[in-house]
């Protein structure tokens, strides 16, 4: 078989002269609270909520996990970095830039979700 041979396709003319359905902006679906409008809104709220819960889960694992580590792994607290005990290095230092880093990633993703939603509405 000659696999590289191009397939035959039917070429037709687009019906440019035919009447198009009247333009019905997607924002009106939302304004009139139609089923479609609800679907749009739910997709946005779900995306943002999923993102928020993801950040909260990671944050929760870190801050609720640290006391557990301190209790269950006493060796962790004994480690010293330049004479400073590791719990102090984490709680009085590293955790703050980590918060800011997490916030930067969140803001970027949240704005992306909104841009995607706006694009979806304007494309329709």
């Amino acid at each position: 078989m000659k696999a590289d041979r191009p397939r035959r396709v039917v070429v037709t003319s687009p019906r440019t002269s035919a009447a198009r359905p009247p333009r019905y902006p997607a924002t009106r679906e939302i304004d009139e609270q139609t089923g479609l409008g609800e679907v749009y809104m739910r997709s946005l709220v779900r995306a943002q909520l999923r993102l928020a819960l993801f950040v909260c889960t990671v944050l929760g694992c870190v801050v609720l996990g640290l006391p557990l580590i301190f209790v269950l792994l006493p060796g962790f607290s004994q480690v010293a970095v330049l004479g400073v005990p590791l719990p102090w290095v984490v709680l009085a230092g590293l955790i703050y830039p980590a918060f800011v880093g997490g916030a930067v990633l969140y803001v970027r993703q949240a704005e992306r979700n909104e841009a995607r939603f706006a694009e979806l509405l304007e494309r329709e």
Partner: peptide
């Protein structure tokens, strides 16, 4: 008191 703002930001 700092992390509270991260929760506030996302929620």
């Amino acid at each position: 008191w700092t992390g509270g703002y991260l929760v506030l930001l996302v929620l």
